[in-house]
Design a protein around this nucleic acid. Sequence first.
DNA 1: GGGAATATTCCC
DNA 2: GGGAATATTCCC
Lengths: 241, 241
Amino acid sequence: MKQNYQVPAFLTKLWTLVDDSCTNELVCWSEEGCSFIVLDEQRFSKEVLPLYYKHCNMTSFIRQLNMYGFHKVVPLDSGLLKEDGRGDSVEFQHEHFRKDQPHLLTLIHRKVSVSRGVDDAGQISQILVEISQARGWQDSFDFKLMALCRDNESLWRELNSLQQKHQQQHRIICKIMQFIINTVGSKGMKGLKRKLPMIEISGETHSVPKYSRPSDSSVDSNLPSFSMPETPSPQDIPSAV
Amino acid sequence: MKQNYQVPAFLTKLWTLVDDSCTNELVCWSEEGCSFIVLDEQRFSKEVLPLYYKHCNMTSFIRQLNMYGFHKVVPLDSGLLKEDGRGDSVEFQHEHFRKDQPHLLTLIHRKVSVSRGVDDAGQISQILVEISQARGWQDSFDFKLMALCRDNESLWRELNSLQQKHQQQHRIICKIMQFIINTVGSKGMKGLKRKLPMIEISGETHSVPKYSRPSDSSVDSNLPSFSMPETPSPQDIPSAV
DNA sequence: GGGAATATTCCC
DNA sequence: GGGAATATTCCC
């Protein structure tokens, strides 16, 4: 038995068996035609089901109903014993399962197992895309970081070189001072002698730079503390007017 | 019909139907008992299959055989017309499907759809592992980057400080020069005057630092070019002994 | 021979 | 009511 459209066999068979007036005492439409009622589960499962499906189990039938989104209709007087002889009946309903409107069956869709199936493939491929993107960012990041490291490396070298030049210059200034004090001062320049002592001359205490780069301790931020000898301010030198 | 062990219904039914001597003219064991032969596909599918399964299609039967890892036995004289009346026969074999040894059935396992199910879980968990690793790398990266940034910051500060000290030193040297030339030179120190000209005196041309921090041009490695005024070496200065 | 959708069973 | 394994169908 084949179905014409995209409607699964279960649905067309269901509509057919509910609509079949020959089995109305076992299964039928509700009064409004918006649901169907199985009047006698026992006889229905043994006599009707095997005519349409490959089994005669009410549970398997209900499993399929749930797979297609049908719901059991809970009567208002549930829990009470019925007196109309329909105590064994169950009613099922689906928005698009209607008497006289079999074309609505195309709107009923079987549930796909949510955790697997089509959904997974999409999710996984999306995750893979995102991971690959992240790896790209990481790489460009790596590149920038390495560039920054090289930059820093050069900066430290320049700073070190400058530092040494500064030390040297300081020593020279000290020697000049010494020279002026010793040579010029001894020739009788009293005024100059008074003004120079505040210039620090002990340049040799700085011959070993207090600052040297930490021996490549990766990228820690233990910065060496500079303590450059203070050079006298220009005001300490006699104006050369 | 229930199976006792963990053996799927398909396998126990298969072994039973092959072993059943009542249907030997339609299906039977091979001579060695290591495979089974369907002698008449047409009659087998219509008469035997529905006795055990919910269908009478040879293709569905073969689909299940494949799902359990059975393989068609290709006879050596395949392609030739048979004369023993077995032209319609097919033979299937599985390592653990043997006559007189139904206990081996427990070793036969149904294939799980490779692209889904168990496999997916593995892929997903591997992806999660990779993501977690990446996050770890990123974190250590972040840490290093921040350290480097602090390091760099300090470098700039030190460099700036050194620069200022250098400027100041330079101004002092200029003043000393001026002082020597104006004061000492006018008092007749000819010898000194001859040795000093190589020292640059135009200190004011350096009042605006040639070097200044590039305005946060991210992380490029365009290092600023230092051009400090060269200071004369100590040998150029008369010893102050 | 096997992928994938639907169907049936089993189990929580 | 629904997850998951197995079974059946459909299709390549």
